[in-house]
Amino acid sequence: MQGPRFTRILRDITAVLVVGIFMFPIFWWGLTSIKPISAIFNKDEVVFFDFEPTLVNYQVVLFGKSRAELAIESGSTFGVGGGSTYDSRKTILDSTLVAVGSTALTVFLGVIAAYALSRINFRGRQAYLNWILSQRFMPPIAIIVPIVFMYHYAGLRDTITGLIFIHTLINLPIAVLLMKSFFDDVPVDVDEAAMLDGATRFQIFRKVILPLVTGGVAATAVLCFVFSWTEFLLSLFLTNQIRTLPVKISTFVTSTGSEWGFISALGTSAIVPSFIFILLVQKQLVRGLTLGSLKD
């Protein structure tokens, strides 16, 4: 695709422009998080850079600074109260535990199921696969009431374990689909060769096939992590004191106004870990997201 110079430059400009448009909301969100309120809401014009940047929102949500402490540092006790409801350090811990836990469980269950679905022939295999995928069709709102009651009596309400299970449920279909496509990419000859050497299915899976798809496992894990990290509705209703990030952010909408500074600061911070993970596995993602369509 090495066209003449002109086309190349045109392509570069278009590419940068397109990516720039997609970056803009995040840039704006980040900018909002360091603005004073008066620069977010200005009745006459949009404020781009003409404001005094402040890190106060991050100090509160990430470092648990209370308004009282800030008051003393800034030399004014006026206009400042406490901030314990905005301290989001425990939220970050909760979110991490839930996302990591559910990712581990999803990948474990998904990988073994996907291997079997890729390699072992049995009657109704396609129907079974469709059944797993159909779990993704369910609107979460349909199961809130039942899950809340069920969790209440099982003692899972407001627990990390409870959230891990429900996020696993949400992610399993996509994990199975992805992992199956990675397994399908590995030629069956490999299995057969190992089998001739007397290995069991399980041994083949663990010693031969799994090492070949580690990249795919990583990509699947990252997607599961992202979906768990960003899930809102079920986390909201299944917890009281445990707060995942999106739920916590939603509580910054108060009866006397939304705390846009805190919302944008925590919103921006929430992006960072998942973005790092997704960068690490981008190559695998681009391979794996063929979603099994390459099979004949």
């Binding site: 940068v16 990516v19 992202v226 919302i263 981008q282």
Partner: peptide
């Protein structure tokens, strides 16, 4: 550019809603 392009994916949808609301 490809890396940056994946950035919107990792924003929690509820937060995306607030972002665009603002």
């Amino acid at each position: 550019l490809r890396a940056l392009m994946t950035l919107p994916l990792v924003v929690p949808p509820a937060v995306t809603g607030m972002m665009f609301l603002l």
